[in-house]
């Protein structure tokens, strides 16, 4: 039978639970294998970052929704972290296959990579639960919809944009609704958020122009 919005939202949550049922709150053995293969082992910094981001997330969630919902925020964060570790492992496996590389020291010690991956996982969890509440007309959440998550984690919109496609590729079990939501976030970023004055996008554009040697040509008037 055709899905009602409630059914669709519930299916998405169920799917998220199925995906994460077997996922772990801490790095898996496979992940530890990759960590140990790094020139600089990132294990400690990754776990510490998850802890620190957790404190920020829970405080901001409680601030936004109410102290009575602090435990809900805690649960959301926990689910997000499971998805973060699961997708990280899948990303590394595919990079290992693609590049025939086993030492991911630079990537795994890159702060922005981890925060954008965690933010993407948390955004998906937040959207999944928010859509359920919206379809049941339950107004529990104040506006925690995107870009709330990148604002509280102090992440640039374009930095999140860089991870979305790889995230979707790395997690084949995402539902249509989840993928649609991430695509919607991408559109919001490219339509406006990525063009804010402090966006790293401008530097990337400048670098690519420099690389193409266009810098020394006079810019055509229509620029």
């Amino acid at each position: 039978p055709p899905q009602t919005p409630v059914r669709a939202a519930m299916n998405t949550i169920q799917q998220l639970m199925i995906i994460l049922n077997s996922a772990s709150d801490i790095p898996s053995d496979n992940l530890l294998f990759y960590f140990n293969n790094c020139t600089v082992n990132p294990h400690e910094s990754i776990v510490k970052r998850v802890e620190n981001m957790g404190i920020i997330f829970k405080n901001k969630f409680a601030e936004a929704v109410g102290q009575g919902c602090a435990e809900i925020g805690s649960q959301r964060y926990k689910i997000g972290v499971r998805l973060y570790y699961r997708v990280m492992e899948s990303l590394l496996k595919s990079e290992e296959k693609r590049l025939s590389v086993h030492n991911f020291s630079k990537l795994l010690n890159n702060d922005v990579f981890h925060i954008s991956l965690l933010a993407c996982a948390l955004e998906l969890v937040m959207a999944t639960y928010a859509s359920r509440n919206a379809s049941q007309n339950v107004n529990v959440e104040t506006d925690l919809s995107f870009p709330w998550i990148i604002n509280i984690l102090d992440l640039k919109a374009f930095e999140l944009y860089m991870i979305v496609e790889s995230f979707i590729k790395a997690e084949p079990s995402l539902t249509r609704e989840m993928i649609k939501h991430l695509e919607c976030c991408e559109h919001k970023i490219m339509e406006s958020l990525a063009w804010q004055s402090n966006s790293p996008l401008f530097e990337l554009i400048k670098q690519s122009k420099d690389r193409e040697g266009q810098a020394d040509e006079p810019e055509p008037a229509n620029y």
Binding site: L91, S94, E95, R98, L99, V101, F104, K106, L107, N110, V112, F113, M162, I163, E165, S166, I168, K169, P172, L174, R176, I179, K180, E183
Partner: peptide, 21 residues
Amino acid sequence: TQDYHFGLEEGEGISELFDCD
């Protein structure tokens, strides 16, 4: 994922995107 428009080119992955190749 059939609805999603993948745009990364061959040889572009997370390592290149985060400048860690």
